[in-house]
Amino acid sequence: MVRTALFLSFLLSSLVAQAAPLRIGVSETLLSLPLYVAEAEGFFQKRGVNVEFVNCVGGNRCMKNMLDGQTDLATATELPVVFNSFSRNDFAILTSFVSVSNDLKVVARAEAKINEPGKLRNKTLGYVKGSASQYVLDLVLVYNGIDPDTVKLKAITPETALTALATKEVDALCIWEPFASRIELELGTDVQLVPIPKLYTETFNLIAMQSVIRNKPQELERVVQALRDSTRFIQTHPEQAKALAAKRLKIPVLVVDKIFDDYRFRLSLNRSLPRTMEGQARWALREGHVNVNLPQPNYTGFFYPAFLKTVDPGAVSLQ
Rank of each mutant, 00 (worst) to 15 (best):
S87Q: 12
A241Q: 05
K216A: 15
R214V: 03
P274N: 14
T236Q: 15
D229R: 08
E111K: 14
L67W: 07
A19T: 11
I251V: 12
Y127L: 01
I156D: 02
L11P: 13
V16W: 05
I259C: 07
F97G: 02
L153F: 12
A281Y: 04
P21I: 00
V82S: 06
K105I: 07
P313K: 00
L220E: 03
S272C: 09
L73M: 04
G48C: 06
L104K: 07
L104I: 14
E278C: 08
D149I: 07
A20K: 15
K64P: 04
A166F: 01
V128E: 04
R266W: 13
S13E: 10
I93A: 02
L193F: 14
N122S: 14
K154M: 10
P297W: 10
R266P: 05
A164N: 03
E41G: 14
S272N: 11
P197T: 01
E116M: 07
L125M: 02
A132I: 03
V82K: 05
L94H: 01
A246C: 07
T4M: 08
L173P: 04
T157S: 11
A155K: 07
S272L: 09
L120W: 02
R264W: 10
N65E: 12
P305I: 11
V142G: 00
I259F: 12
A38V: 06
A315P: 06
L254W: 09
K105P: 08
L139R: 01
D257M: 08
A241C: 11
T203C: 12
R275Y: 13
K154G: 05
S27I: 05
T163H: 07
